[in-house]
Amino acid sequence: MKHFKPTTRMSDIIHTNYLLLPVINRFGVRLGFGDKTVEEVCREKKLNAGFFLAILNAYHDPDYFPEKELQGFSTHLIIDYLKKTHDYYREYVIPKVESDLENLMGDCQGNCRNLRLIRSFYDKYKVELLNHLNEEDTRVFPYMTDLQRVYDKEIPMADKVRNFSIRNFEEEHTDIDNKLFDLKNIIIKYLEPQYVDNMCNAFLYAIFQLEQDLIDHARIEDKILVPKIMLIEKAVKS
């Protein structure tokens, strides 16, 4: 697969893969870029072009994951991107999935009992996902930011930084991914289709897309951010 370069035109990137639209938006990059290249847009928006490209390429090609390069970017930069992604899930993706599910239920034909089961399953999943995002935004990320600042000697060491460890932050990602996969698979394989097909398709598209986005997101957390923070913990706390 071809990877995007600093000299690639922004418009070509979107023509190649329109699923990158929300990703560029997270960086504050919006459409209407004429013939501008990645470099030019990043210079204008004061973005780190290396980081921008690494994120786009990794999203575009799941095999491409330059771990060392990504770990080299600043903690603040990475967290900022991840937080924007959380906002995107909360403000757009989850409401969208939900309204698709509402439409699906609203047009249910015949016995709607089974669709209601799907909804209960989704509701439980949603609570779990929101809790997870919330935990990261309110506890994990602030800790990481503080730790980095202690390391950079911007703030003194404090108890709340000393007593927290990234190891406490258990791996919940697998469980979250699994549930979403189950939801898809139950509908695809086991649910009797008593619904309007297009409504169900819309719901599934939304789930597929959320799943892909979450997998990309979680691997940045697990493989880039967490190892990076562990190294800093080692340096600061021992």
Binding site: L117, I118, F121, K124, Y125, D175, N178, K179, F181, D182, L183, N185, I186, K189, Y190
Partner: peptide, 11 residues
């Protein structure tokens, strides 16, 4: 192809 307990319950 179902991994979670709640998924198995739905099934």
């Amino acid at each position: 192809g179902i991994k979670s307990i709640s998924g198995l319950t739905v099934y």
